[in-house]
Design a protein around this nucleic acid. Sequence first.
DNA 1: GGGCAACTACTCGGATAACGATTGTCCGAGTAATCATGG
DNA 2: CCATGATTACTCGGACAATCGTTATCCGAGTAGTTGCCC
Lengths: 168, 168
Amino acid sequence: MKLSDGVEAAIHCATMLAALKDDAVLPTTALAEFYGVSASYLAKHLSALVRCDILISVNGPAGGFRLQRPADKITLLDVVLAIEGDAPAFRCAEIRRNGPGAPDASAYIKPCGIKSAMLAAERAWRGELAKTSIADLVQSFRAEADPRSLARNRAFVADTARVQPRTD
Amino acid sequence: MKLSDGVEAAIHCATMLAALKDDAVLPTTALAEFYGVSASYLAKHLSALVRCDILISVNGPAGGFRLQRPADKITLLDVVLAIEGDAPAFRCAEIRRNGPGAPDASAYIKPCGIKSAMLAAERAWRGELAKTSIADLVQSFRAEADPRSLARNRAFVADTARVQPRTD
DNA sequence: GGGCAACTACTCGGATAACGATTGTCCGAGTAATCATGG
DNA sequence: CCATGATTACTCGGACAATCGTTATCCGAGTAGTTGCCC
């Protein structure tokens, strides 16, 4: 039970991109330097977000990434599943059917209680993640963060963002 | 985000042990054969449950494992944490503090919203797991399982359980 | 001076190694039942 | 027949490899900006 290391970076980048004006983008290198992480590795995660229709990538000079839709339409769950994959955390191997003397499949029509309980817990987890949107994170950051931190983020966006005409 | 493979086996074994009479134990080999899993590997997980005071091990001939306390006092969460470790799934590396121009630590007294949201989701997950006890699983199994499966489990316990005087 | 074309530089995207954790296995320490022995 | 002691066989526990996934990196494909040239 451990989440991929890139989840944190992906969410931070998403919140940063949410602060951009429409049609503006940020490149991987700038984000990687700002957060002090490997640019090559961050690129992999941002690509995953593009594949899941969370980000849009713009190629070429003055290219970069921006959100695919409004920040209040992107939940934490969307981002986490994009990075981690949407496979359930608990995979039931049905070992109850193994071993000598086990009856045939007709005896196991009902799902076992263990699987049900584990999946219910995961639903709770996902439901909680789905409650928070990227817009919520941006709002709470603006409301609660230290002024220095806020100023640094604003300056970064102002200095680095590039305007890019929409093509979609 | 994936749970260790041994979680399923550990929970199954716990429910099986919950069906034993007091002072009876089951050895690793019997459980492994019943569930068709590797005995050596299962032993590792059962040892983890012993370390977390969920099971008691009895050494020597006629030895094995039994529950450390009543089944309704053992939750799914206890078992999962014993196998997976109790470290939180989301580990915040505080990358918001990285990069050039980041203010000193005094600017980051408040935990970031990302971390808070992720931990809240994990609390929901754990809370859900804590709702279900091993006793609940046994009860639902007895109420809903196929008669053939039920009979097989009963026969296994009757044939394999050994009585072992308590020493604690 | 304006338009056009080739070039250049910067971006993302996918294919490719290194590390670490989980998985899987084995052998040794310990203990209680067993069996032989003596009273 | 019963008590006793050494033996034996069976158990758990921790130390030791193999495999897989995640982490980390690099280079190639593509595109828009830039520059130089021609009209």
